[in-house]
Computed example of a mutant assay.
Amino acid sequence: MLTKEEKKVVSGITFVVVARFLGLFLLLPVLAPYVKNLPGSTPLLTGLAVGIYGLTQALLQIPFGYLSDKYSRKGVISFGLLVYALGSFLGGIAQNIWMMLFARFLQGAGAISSAAIALAADLIREEVRTVTFAHIGAAIGMSFAFSIVAAPFLAGHFGVPFIFFLTGGLSLLALLYLWIFIKEPQRHEKEIEPFLKLLPQILRDKNQMAVDLSIGILHLFLVSIFTVIPVELIERFNFPKPEHWKIYLPVIIISLAIMVPAIIAAERKGKMKPVFLAGIAFVALGFASHLILQDFWGAVLLLLFFFIGFHLMEPILPSMLTKFAGPERRGIAVGVYNTVQFSGAFIGGFLGGLFLKLGAVYMLLTNLLLSLVWLLGIGIWIKNVEIKKRST
Results as ranks from 00 to 15, higher is better:
residue 139 A to K: 09
residue 149 V to T: 08
residue 182 I to V: 15
residue 40 G to I: 11
residue 369 L to V: 15
residue 369 L to T: 15
residue 121 A to N: 06
residue 330 R to G: 09
residue 359 G to W: 08
residue 269 K to N: 07
residue 45 L to A: 06
residue 371 S to V: 08
residue 141 G to S: 11
residue 306 F to R: 05
residue 384 N to D: 13
residue 218 L to P: 11
residue 377 G to I: 04
residue 91 G to D: 02
residue 182 I to K: 02
residue 172 L to V: 05
residue 318 P to T: 08
residue 23 G to R: 05
residue 206 K to P: 07
residue 306 F to P: 02
residue 275 V to A: 10
residue 286 G to H: 00
residue 19 A to V: 00
residue 303 L to N: 07
residue 121 A to V: 04
residue 49 A to K: 06
residue 192 I to P: 09
residue 370 L to N: 02
residue 240 P to W: 07
residue 356 L to E: 09
residue 171 S to K: 08
residue 267 E to K: 06
residue 71 Y to C: 06
residue 59 L to W: 08
residue 117 I to S: 14
residue 325 A to V: 12
residue 376 L to F: 15
residue 126 E to A: 14
residue 177 Y to Q: 01
residue 299 A to D: 06
residue 315 P to G: 05
residue 238 N to Q: 13
residue 138 A to Y: 07
residue 131 V to K: 12
residue 340 V to F: 13
residue 30 V to C: 04
residue 240 P to M: 05
residue 168 G to V: 05
residue 337 Y to E: 05
residue 327 P to E: 15
residue 314 E to W: 09
residue 370 L to H: 00
residue 350 F to S: 07
residue 66 Y to A: 12
residue 75 G to R: 06
residue 225 I to N: 12
residue 386 E to P: 02
residue 341 Q to W: 09
residue 356 L to N: 06
residue 242 P to R: 00
residue 227 T to C: 01
residue 1 M to K: 11
residue 350 F to C: 00
residue 359 G to D: 05
residue 233 L to A: 03
residue 71 Y to N: 06
residue 144 F to W: 12
residue 116 A to G: 09
residue 313 M to L: 15
residue 112 I to M: 03
residue 268 R to K: 15
residue 277 L to I: 10
residue 172 L to K: 04
residue 68 S to N: 04
residue 100 M to T: 05
residue 179 W to M: 04
residue 221 F to T: 04
residue 194 P to C: 04
residue 156 G to N: 11
residue 233 L to Q: 12
residue 167 T to C: 15
residue 343 S to H: 01
residue 45 L to M: 11
residue 314 E to L: 03
residue 261 P to W: 12
residue 162 F to D: 07
residue 356 L to Y: 07
residue 368 L to S: 11
residue 72 S to D: 01
